[in-house]
């Protein structure tokens, strides 16, 4: 009975291969499967439409036209470079503001602030995700913009600065919640050890817990950036929408998203649309790349799961 047949063995040889039970086919399964397939294919349909409508630009080799600095549709100039620059400037600066703040809030929740306040603060951050974007924009127009106008006495107040302040507040919950969920997995396990070793909480967070949740830190930055790039309303409402590269934070900018919204609602002629769809395509590819990156990081952080 003992060890009669040890060592490796070919499982396909001895008996038939078992297929997993439960993959039973039933009429409704086709319905469910098509629903899933359809949902998965939408992303390709989006890409297809955007590509189809911006195709003429690529075929006729008018890419230089696209990447020029001048948006003067009535003179036949359709450069969207200022919008690309505006998008990047706004998203990066909003992230640069929101990220350290988000980190600070997370550290507060995880031990630097009074434990009594941690839970209500987290609830507040979660609740913030329920505030409509347009409400942020609206309050910003009537509260922040006049404030900036009076404070700096520089232009109308509709500026990169106003937009980045508002946008930072908008993406803050995203950043906080992601870092928090990572820290929440790491801290309880490490804290007891660290405390037993006599390590102060600040040092424990800085040198042990934060490095241990590097995945969350990276993902939060990427996701926050993605949110900022994709936002339309804040930029549209408070950034001023001048289609040129700004000289300072007090200047007006226009993002790609706002550009699309503006041009469509002013109903121009069809040549404008090509440039518009090209802008949409660039935006789409950017966010897709961001999400692919996020997916890679996630599946590397938890290889057992399927990364979602």
């Amino acid at each position: 009975m003992l060890n009669r047949n040890s060592g490796k063995r070919d499982f396909t040889a001895g008996g038939r291969l078992t297929s997993p039970a439960g993959r039973i086919h039933f009429p409704g399964e086709l319905l469910l499967r098509s629903a899933a397939l359809f949902s998965a294919l939408i992303i390709f349909a989006l890409f297809g439409f955007l590509a189809y409508f911006s195709l003429p630009l690529f075929i006729e080799g008018r890419l230089g036209e696209l990447f020029s600095l001048h948006w003067r549709p009535f003179q036949g100039q359709f450069g969207i470079l200022p919008m690309i620059v505006g998008t990047l400037l706004l998203a990066l600066s909003a992230l640069a503001l929101a990220y350290p703040l988000g980190l600070g809030i997370c550290l507060f929740i995880h031990g630097l602030g009074p434990a009594l306040l941690a839970r209500p603060l987290l609830l507040l951050v979660q609740g913030m995700t329920g505030i409509p974007t347009v409400v942020y924009g609206f309050v910003s127009v009537f509260l922040l913009v006049p404030l900036l106008r009076n404070l700096f006495a520089h232009g109308s107040g509709f500026s990169l600065l106003a937009a980045l302040l508002t946008l930072a507040l908008l993406i803050l919950p995203t950043i906080v919640l992601l870092i928090h969920s990572q820290l929440g997995q790491v801290v309880p396990a490490l804290r007891l050890t660290a405390t037993a070793l006599g390590i102060a909480r600040e040092r424990e967070l800085l040198y042990i817990s934060l490095p241990a949740s590097s995945y969350g830190l990276l993902a939060a930055a990427i996701l926050g950036f993605g949110r900022a790039v994709g936002d339309t309303l804040i930029a549209l409402m408070v950034a001023g929408n001048a289609a040129r590269i700004p000289d300072s934070a007090f200047d007006s900018i226009r993002t790609l998203t706002a550009h699309i919204a503006l041009v469509v609602s002013t109903d121009s002629q069809s040549t404008t649309y090509q440039s518009l769809f090209a802008g949409g395509l660039i935006l789409f590819l950017t966010t897709a790349a961001i999400n692919l990156l996020l997916h890679r990081i996630k599946s590397r952080a938890c290889p057992s799961g399927d990364g979602s």
């Binding site: 949902s39 998965a40 994709g230 935006l283 789409f284 897709a288």
Partner: peptide, 12 residues
């Protein structure tokens, strides 16, 4: 694929 769709900006 669905994750990519979720990350696509609403303006798109």
């Amino acid at each position: 694929s669905v994750e990519l769709l979720a990350g696509t900006p609403s303006i798109i």
